[in-house]
Nucleic acid binder design. Structure first.
Lengths: 239, 239
DNA sequence: TCTCCACATTGGTATAGACCAGATGAGAAG
DNA sequence: CTTCTCATCTGGTCTATACCAATGTGGAGA
């Protein structure tokens, strides 16, 4: 059965990939179960899974725990040099953005935050955790910290929309500088649970620090994205 | 042996991670073989591999095919808004950059390139393929296309250094605009082979289009990075 | 009609064993 | 001392099986 230059799992991979690109399965649709694909190809279930992992790494398919494998929708394009928020750029791409606030509490500034915000340890901070979705699929978890002294009562507001808008329109806080760090990572337990994916799945970690015109840190934001949901595009002109 | 909330493979993962952060294994060093770790923990080899895959996804370790698992060195920081080339920013971070030219040939402009470069189909182009390493480990494969009419005889030069420098100093071509797209991907067969990694490993695809002051496309560059070798950092001020 | 529960299905984890091909290193040959 | 060969070690692939836990479904009951 196996040819020397055709590994079984790659054969199965190509098979499934062809059926997807051939239109048999469309974006968002469910694939047949692992056991069904197994009997079709005459291979062990582990081999089918190997092929599915491959396609998952490529961003072609994704899984919902114990529900099945689904065809991935196209990724969202993100430009870190633009000021638009999530809701705005997702919508501009013809997709349906959604934000859920998972928690919003007041915390005391710890050592790391003290350094980032240049505030004393123990100073009040707001900590907001949100889940954002595109077309009904959760794509990122973000963990935002805002200096409570700059935006008192922030957590009383509805934060299921654009936080940037609230900061600007309610508190008059504008952002003058944005520092963004991005790094491939594995999604850790708490994030993976909130995204309802398997812990350890590859993802993209995005850390954003926003400064106002006075150079004060306004917002510190850690985002964890599904690796298949995002495409980064930067357009730079000479300064 | 197994607790309900402690999966075997996560236990093994934590074990290995602790030994790495504890200093037992240092960056670049080899871990014990899978079979050795198996007997130590009293688990099946598949379970040990599951743990190793997890650490690989996290960027903590990497593998050399059929040689063993090694501890990952820290990633290189890349800022797409800066004009520095690879050689320059890697060196600035105290690492040792290296470039090998795998091939450099003249090709005819195909449909896709014609559109990108705004040149007729069949126009002469140079196609350069290079492998770049940090501290002796191959981290990316790049595939560069340059308009041959802008830089005649380019491939006669030594390209094992900075291509940007050659374009500027020999041909007087400067870059005025840079468009960079990044997307998590799986490393496909040819790239994986050149990087000597397993095909399908997660990576980062980076596509760069360079324009000169007249808006002509000077260079079109596709880079495929190991996912654990790169960290992206962007610092943006309001325009 | 709606709700709730039991059950079949699905992916997730784990074991054990087998063989292959590339990498490596030790030893033989020059 | 160098070069070549070969046995050994390593990860890579594959099969087969088993059980678990979450999901989704359909039927019973309110």
């Amino acid at each position: 059965m196996q040819q020397p230059d055709t590994l079984h799992y790659l054969g199965v991979r190509d098979d499934i990939a062809a059926r997807i690109s051939g239109g048999e399965f469309k974006a968002g649709e469910r694939l047949p179960s692992e056991r069904q694909m197994q009997v079709g190809g005459g291979v062990a279930r582990g081999t089918v899974r190997e092929a599915l992992f491959q396609l998952e790494a490529e961003g072609v398919i994704y899984r919902k725990d114990r529900s099945g494998w689904y065809v991935s929708p196209p990724p969202v394009v993100y430009d870190p040099t633009r000021w638009e928020g999530f809701m705005s750029y997702v919508e501009a791409q013809g997709r349906r953005p959604e934000t859920e606030t998972l928690s919003k509490i007041e915390i005391a500034c710890d050592g790391m935050l003290a350094e980032i915000f240049s505030r004393p340890i123990g100073a009040p901070m707001y900590w907001i955790r949100r889940r954002r979705s595109v077309d009904g699929r959760a794509v990122l978890i973000e963990s935002i910290v805002v200096d409570a002294s700059l935006a008192p009562g922030l957590v009383e507001h509805d934060l299921d929309g654009s936080l940037t808008n609230v900061l600007k329109q309610v508190y008059g806080i504008g952002v003058a500088r944005n520092k963004v760090d991005m790094q491939p990572c594995a999604l850790t337990r708490d994030v993976a649970e909130a995204l309802r994916v398997k812990s350890g799945l590859p993802g993209l970690s995005l850390v954003r620090t926003c400064y106002d015109a006075q150079g004060r840190v306004v917002e510190f934001d850690r985002e964890h994205w599904r690796h298949d949901a995002l495409k980064i595009s930067v357009d730079i002109r000479v300064r």
